[in-house]
Amino acid sequence: MAKSICTRVLLILFSSVFLFSCGKSNMCESDGMAYVMSQKYVKNHLKSPSSANFPHAPISSSYLGSCTHVVTGSFEASNSFGAMMRSTYKVTMKYNEKNRTWSGSDLTID
């Protein structure tokens, strides 16, 4: 019984910390969220977006200020012939605090 209560208290504590850390002000500076949203942006520019696989972490992610990040990452996706190819990308991601949306620009895929 005591173990169950302790587990519940820890779960509530961690949930509160997670929700607090996902607030509007932290979203702007979140390299992790910039990476996740960069994956979505890159997929929208692929011929076979459903085939794309991304690693758990980017190659690099830099916060430039003003809710802007430069993300460099890698992925594997099918090309026009159906062969899986590994590529790298670099994209600028910007978070709009008013609309709570992310947008990408300056995408390069090598």
Rank of each mutant, 00 (worst) to 15 (best):
K24G: 03
Y35M: 00
S25K: 15
S62Y: 11
E76A: 07
M84T: 03
S66N: 14
V17C: 04
T108S: 11
D106I: 00
V36F: 06
S21Y: 07
L13G: 05
L64Y: 09
Y35F: 04
R100Q: 13
E97D: 11
A77Q: 08
L64T: 00
C22N: 15
G73Q: 02
Q39N: 13
S61W: 07
T68L: 05
C6S: 14
Q39S: 07
N96T: 01
I12N: 12
Y35S: 00
Y63I: 02
M1C: 03
C6N: 15
N26F: 13
A52K: 12
S15L: 14
D110S: 14
A2K: 15
A57K: 15
K3E: 10
N26T: 11
C67Y: 06
M1I: 04
F75D: 03
G73W: 03
H56A: 10
S21M: 12
A83F: 11
D110Y: 14
V9I: 14
Y89R: 08
F54T: 02
L107R: 09
A83D: 05
A52H: 07
W102S: 01
N53Q: 15
H45Y: 10
T92V: 09
S48H: 15
S48N: 15
S87Q: 13
S15W: 13
G82V: 00
S15G: 13
D106G: 04
L19M: 04
G73Y: 03
V71H: 05
V71R: 07
V9T: 10
V91C: 07
K24F: 04
S80W: 13
M84C: 02
I12S: 13
A2Y: 10
D110T: 07
K94C: 10
S48Q: 13
V71Y: 05
T92I: 06
H56D: 15
D110P: 14
S60D: 11
R86I: 03
E29C: 04
M37Q: 15
M37I: 01
S78M: 15
